[in-house]
Design a protein around this nucleic acid. Structure first.
Lengths: 361, 361
DNA sequence: AGAAAAACTTGGAGCGCTCCAATAAATGTT
DNA sequence: AACATTTATTGGAGCGCTCCAAGTTTTTCT
């Protein structure tokens, strides 16, 4: 690869002049410029390599987007939620003329990616462990984390999950539901993990997970109605896992309402219901979380706890780009009522519901 | 911002040693390493800035994706076709551990973006003018263009649009349709442009546009049936423009079939049909192009000329990453029959169809 | 024509880091 | 204790470019 220097040598001028020919052409006399251009052409030099300039200028004019949890960047594109996040970030980048870099990172390489990403700042999809935040901080670039709060020093934007969960639960309770199955979010890839009532620990509600808050909201709303979340089965599934529906219907045959932590989970439940001939909402109500565009297009359309996902990501990107004082933003949610929730009907009406199977060990 | 040098000075060691502390920690004796780490901590130095390394190593480990036509990156995320492209590119990047950079560029800044993008190569969404290809070539990085062929020197991947259009047209002709309205693709943003038969030039079939080929396919299939494309209205619209449907129904009230160049166009037509109470496929057949996931979920599901969009983008990304000898790939298409096409019924059955309006000037 | 002003060129000093040959220090051997 | 090995550390040369003060040439003006 020829460099600026090579061209300068060939044209018999200095490096600076060649730089001018490409960057400030009218600061160079025509004859000379043409000579330089000719030399560049001869050498196959296509103009200054941005690498050099970069070092000088110090800015990439790019922000990085690091997928939430254990997701790869293709998972982000595939997921309804991830797509809207991407859309919002892209809008902000469009407006700022910046590049949006989808930064790749598996669980092991994630901190390395943060250390080395060629960006001016980044958006961290919701973070599982505090270590990631620490390494982001070490990088000393602006960043914002989504769906977690890491204190007043760190930019964060999250929704009011507690409130959203309460709204969802009250809605279902108001319809008369008393037996719930809860789909919580499993971060790592893998099969659903079933926690039946009374069984294994309920320490799901701790830690840095985005559904901590939401579960707490359900718990509180349930408590208002004299119910305990400890009596409800909780199943951890990875959003988008097509096995989620099966895990629910197999393990919780008498639940009249299925509450989820993401629309994508709810959508897979809906799919499985169709497969099993279970009518939603006639036999079982399903409620989503997020308010993705897809939720409006399912059959039946999904009742969901909606928020402005793209707006959230747009704000995040703008915060990164602006690089101002740290802020913690909590966005409102809104319960969007659609067709997937209704009053419970006798859950065991003969012939209409598939026979209860014993819960798996 | 402290640099490696500052740390070295503060710790009283050389730059190289500090570099080792961060990159090859066990090549430095413990005591010294700790002294260096302490100095770094004191200075708030968070590790080597990737900019420096970059210059040395010369690789970004990233590929750029430049949106087709006049689209912004948010348009790509928004469009069903763009999303699948993104998905495929993301899959390839996941596999290679590379970053996918969505490179921003308006019409004016596009060549500048190509000149300056901080990537090792790029995918160019379908290109309108040859000038873009020239500037990509000048950059001397591997790149592939989608949906165009720029000769044997340039990587390109496109589908067999001619064949696809013929299949679509034959299908409709076989059903008995004789009066078509054709939606062609308008590249720039803007309102639909209506070309009624006999009116304004038909030079749509020239140039570097992706629908050149497809129009030619329709023309040829129509000719087989003794019809001329010159007798059919052609309307140029930007995919996703919600006005597309109105433009068709207003201007071509007696078409029994609407052929489009993209699913997104077809979907907006479907939406407008619902709005006007026009039954698809009872009153008018609609056919898409691309085979996006969305096309399967419309009501009625869309008959479309499908291809593996994500696979195409994946291949493109792999070609960029591999940086091998130039190839030109033509991918097969497949007519996917669904519910949006059927036999024409008398197009002007009274009371069922909205009265024909005169075409707009 | 000569001086002053304007226009153009140059060369060097970075930008922050990595790599490597050379040097220095520690450890091992007889 | 003298020497050979092994292990640590250093300093300089890039990587490709931009910026700028200083120097040179050309143009303009009297």
């Amino acid at each position: 690869m020829p460099t600026l220097d090579d061209v300068a040598k060939k044209a018999g001028v200095s490096r600076g002049t060649v730089s001018n020919v490409f960057n400030r052409p009218d600061a160079v006399r025509t004859a000379l410029r043409e000579r330089v251009e000719e030399a560049a052409r001869l050498l196959g030099y296509g103009g200054p390599d941005p690498k050099g300039r970069l070092l000088k200028e110090g800015k990439f004019n790019a922000i990085g987007f690091m997928p939430p949890g254990a997701y790869a960047i293709s998972d982000v594109v595939r997921s309804p939620y991830g797509r809207e996040l991407l859309l919002g970030a892209a809008q902000a980048c469009d407006a700022a003329g910046a590049t949006l870099s989808l930064v790749n990172g598996t669980d092991e390489t994630r901190t390395a990616s943060i250390r080395e990403a060629l960006v001016d700042g980044f958006i961290l999809g919701n973070v599982i462990d505090i270590e990631l935040v620490a390494s982001a901080k070490r990088r000393r670039l602006p960043f914002v984390i989504l769906e977690s709060d890491a204190g007043p020093e760190i930019n964060s934007i999250r929704i009011d999950g507690h409130c959203g969960a309460i709204a969802a639960a009250r809605h279902l309770l108001g319809l008369g539901h008393r037996r719930f199955a809860i789909l919580s979010i499993r971060r790592a890839a893998g099969a659903p993990i079933v926690h039946m009532p009374g069984k294994s620990g309920r320490e799901l509600m701790t830690g840095f997970a985005l559904d901590h808050e939401r579960l707490a909201g359900f718990r509180d709303a349930l408590a208002e109605a004299g119910l305990s979340i400890d009596d409800m089965p909780i199943i951890e599934t990875t959003p988008g896992d097509p096995g989620a529906g099966a895990a629910v219907f197999d393990n919780c045959p008498d639940a009249t309402a299925i509450v989820t932590m993401s629309d994508w989970q709810a959508i897979t439940v809906l799919d499985e219901a169709v497969r099993r001939g279970i009518d939603v909402p006639d036999q079982v109500s399903v409620i989503g979380f997020d308010g993705t565009a897809e939720a409006a297009r399912t059959i039946p359309p999904l009742t969901t706890v909606a928020h402005d996902i793209a707006g959230k990501a747009r704000m995040a990107a703008e915060m990164v780009l602006a690089n101002g004082a740290p802020r913690q933003v909590v966005l409102p949610v809104e319960l969007t009522l659609r067709g997937s929730t209704a009053k419970p009907r006798d859950a065991l009406a003969p012939g209409k519901r598939q026979p209860a199977k014993p819960p798996r060990p």
